[in-house]
Simulated assay, not measured.
Amino acid sequence: MYLADQTWPELGDYVASESLAVVPLGSTEQHGPHLPLATDHLIAESLARAATDRTGHLCTPTVNVGVSPHHRQFHGTMWVDAPQFRDYVESMTRNLAYHGVDRVVFVNAHGGNVQHLREVGRRLRDDGTMYAIEWMWDESIPDLVSELFDHPGPHGGPKETAMIMHIARDLVRDDRLEDARDGGTVDLTGDHLREYGARTYYDAIENAENGVFGDQTDATPDAGAELFEAATDQLVRLLEWLDAQPIDDLLAPAHVDPQPGERR
């Protein structure tokens, strides 16, 4: 159920019996010469809508701009600073709590958002407002990603390319796949741009001249369909699990005895 398509009485019927919502989040940032800047938020929204269509749960509008300053050197990249992103997402999610939602899944498709969504989830849980967790599609199906691609790449690689081939085929520039591979970094090793254990880089351009990683020529629409269905299955299972949990089991445990301020 997509929130923005409903009327307020219809949403009243929903929260009278349900208390779970899905919030898709991505970014608007460079994804090399072959993929649109919309890549991350297209993936997040498509997965969120597919999973909630199957479960009947509520899906909110997508947060399209995320924490992406590490891609700022490339034309068109948009970002918000981390504190403002956290505050915005927290405020929006508290709106849902006001309407009766007590558990949320952040369906996230941008790595730069992860730690900040975790922080928002902690804030909401620690003050007893709700239970909110971050879910990243490719982390839910690592074995399949490894099976399909020798060089999946952490950004703009064949896994994201295949997903967009499945979701929005006309937005993939097929004639630039080799350029993406040859102008980027195929293998990003663990010690890449590290000195004596310190990570010495901040921005994507320092690791790949065109901003992307992996071998994009391995991507196919069929692989994208397989990734999409597998990730959707995982998200559906997560929603069903979360919906079944008693809220008291999800919120922060109490302080060990004796309780703070309790007289012995």
Rank of each mutant, 00 (worst) to 15 (best):
residue 149 F to E: 05
residue 183 G to L: 08
residue 104 V to G: 04
residue 69 P to F: 11
residue 209 E to Q: 15
residue 98 Y to Q: 11
residue 145 V to G: 00
residue 13 D to E: 14
residue 19 S to R: 05
residue 26 G to E: 04
residue 65 V to T: 11
residue 260 P to T: 10
residue 50 A to Q: 09
residue 118 R to M: 11
residue 75 H to F: 15
residue 113 N to L: 03
residue 160 E to T: 08
residue 226 E to P: 01
residue 238 L to S: 13
residue 144 L to W: 04
residue 159 K to P: 04
residue 218 D to G: 12
residue 241 W to T: 14
residue 73 Q to T: 15
residue 14 Y to M: 08
residue 169 R to E: 14
residue 79 W to C: 13
residue 135 W to H: 08
residue 240 E to M: 06
residue 255 H to I: 04
residue 112 G to T: 10
residue 86 R to H: 11
residue 84 Q to P: 01
residue 230 A to G: 09
residue 42 L to D: 01
residue 68 S to F: 03
residue 189 T to S: 15
residue 119 E to N: 08
residue 182 D to Q: 13
residue 34 H to W: 00
residue 89 V to C: 10
residue 219 A to N: 06
residue 101 V to T: 01
residue 71 H to K: 06
residue 154 P to D: 07
residue 218 D to P: 01
residue 93 T to R: 04
residue 220 T to A: 07
residue 163 M to C: 07
residue 230 A to E: 13
residue 13 D to R: 13
residue 18 E to Y: 07
residue 42 L to M: 11
residue 168 A to P: 00
residue 233 D to G: 07
residue 49 R to S: 04
residue 158 P to Q: 10
residue 252 A to V: 10
residue 43 I to K: 03
residue 132 A to Y: 00
residue 86 R to E: 15
residue 164 I to M: 09
residue 171 L to W: 12
residue 194 R to Q: 12
residue 138 D to G: 07
residue 48 A to W: 04
residue 242 L to W: 05
residue 15 V to A: 00
residue 176 R to K: 13
residue 222 D to T: 06
residue 109 A to H: 01
residue 62 T to L: 10
residue 128 G to S: 00
residue 95 N to D: 15
residue 43 I to S: 08
residue 240 E to N: 09
residue 21 A to F: 06
residue 255 H to G: 07
residue 148 L to G: 00
residue 199 R to D: 14
residue 9 P to H: 06
residue 259 Q to D: 11
residue 231 A to T: 13
residue 212 V to S: 01
residue 198 A to Q: 14
residue 69 P to E: 06
residue 201 Y to Q: 04
residue 132 A to Q: 00
residue 223 A to R: 13
residue 50 A to P: 05
residue 102 D to S: 08
residue 60 T to G: 07
residue 84 Q to C: 05
residue 233 D to Q: 12
residue 172 V to W: 02
residue 163 M to I: 02
residue 129 T to N: 03
residue 166 H to Y: 11
residue 78 M to Q: 14
residue 194 R to N: 05
residue 30 Q to D: 09
residue 190 G to Y: 09
residue 60 T to P: 03
residue 253 P to Y: 00
residue 208 A to I: 00
residue 184 G to Y: 13
residue 41 H to T: 02
residue 212 V to M: 05
residue 189 T to E: 12
residue 155 H to D: 08
residue 226 E to G: 07
residue 54 R to W: 07
residue 188 L to I: 14
residue 213 F to P: 02
residue 207 N to C: 14
residue 175 D to Q: 09
residue 211 G to A: 02
residue 128 G to I: 02
residue 224 G to D: 03
residue 93 T to F: 05
residue 105 V to A: 03
residue 116 H to F: 15
residue 118 R to F: 12
residue 95 N to W: 10
residue 145 V to E: 04
residue 42 L to A: 03
residue 232 T to I: 03
residue 121 G to R: 03
residue 148 L to V: 05
residue 217 T to E: 12
residue 111 G to P: 09
residue 5 D to T: 13
residue 212 V to W: 08
residue 220 T to F: 01
